[in-house]
């Protein structure tokens, strides 16, 4: 019987190692797998690269993970959001590498990773500082820059509802980066609010089919 549930956060995060790239979903608090991220901050690993839209707010979630000292590099579109006390301090003290990526490009780079595409050309960022060092090409008379895939060793995502196969349904704008990150993680772990019986999710409404999901951990 396929059952992707694990009983603890430790089991959900088993195998995370030094230097891993961790995709952390969420936009603000909506769709953020807060409990999973907090659990990761307790694991003895270092030199992680975190991919998240922001650099966290307050002292928990991504902010707590940064504060734990386990993160070497942050890849994000907008580091300073909400109350970025932890990020600001690390940035000031030059204790964190920062890669700024336009939000749509960040999402598409993960899509490329999840879809087995070797990158893509986009007009986003062409002719700007964020294009420095990137291959360029004129396509139909418009300047494009080449962007590489952005895979994760782990993708930590959050869903409202799941069955034991890992089929996922999200709630409102808490969907955000979750479906694309689910495809881009070598190991995708979903923190879910509710587990339901197989066959009870509306097949038309399943936003992430279970093929992308490796582990489920319930955190109501």
């Amino acid at each position: 019987m396929i059952d992707k549930r694990v009983e603890s956060f430790a089991a959900a995060l088993a195998g995370v190692k030094d230097g891993d790239v961790i995709l952390c979903s969420g936009f603000g608090k909506a769709g953020e797998p807060r409990a999973l991220i907090d659990a990761l901050a307790e694991i003895d690993v270092r030199d992680l690269t975190v991919v998240s839209n922001n650099g966290g707010s307050g002292v928990n979630g991504v902010a707590g993970l940064l504060k734990s000292g386990r993160v070497r590099k942050l890849i994000c579109s907008y580091p300073r959001s909400g109350d970025p006390v932890v990020f600001d301090q690390l940035y000031r003290e030059q204790k964190l590498e920062l890669e700024i990526v336009p939000q749509g490009t960040m999402s598409e780079r993960m899509r490329a990773a999840g879809a087995g595409i070797g990158g893509f050309f986009t007009r986003t960022g062409a002719g700007t500082r964020l294009a420095e060092g990137k291959e360029t090409r004129m396509i139909d008379g418009q300047l494009h820059i080449f962007e590489k895939p952005l895979p994760g060793d782990f993708a930590l995502i959050m869903a409202q509802c799941a069955d034991r196969w890992g089929n996922l349904i999200y709630r409102k704008a808490a969907r955000n980066f979750n479906p694309v990150m689910a495809t881009a993680g070598k190991v995708t772990v979903a923190q879910i609010a509710e587990l339901v019986d197989l066959g009870t999710l509306d097949p038309e409404a399943i936003a992430t089919p279970g093929i992308y999901v490796d582990r489920l951990v319930v955190s109501p």
Partner: peptide, 30 residues
């Protein structure tokens, strides 16, 4: 709290509105 805008402020959905994931939001933009 699951219905927020790009500035993370609370918002609402009008009749006929829809939700989709980030990648699709940027397919619409790009």
């Amino acid at each position: 709290p699951d219905l927020i805008n790009a500035g993370r402020g609370l918002t609402t959905l009008v009749p006929g509105g829809s939700f989709f994931h980030h990648n699709e939001a940027f397919v619409m933009i790009r």
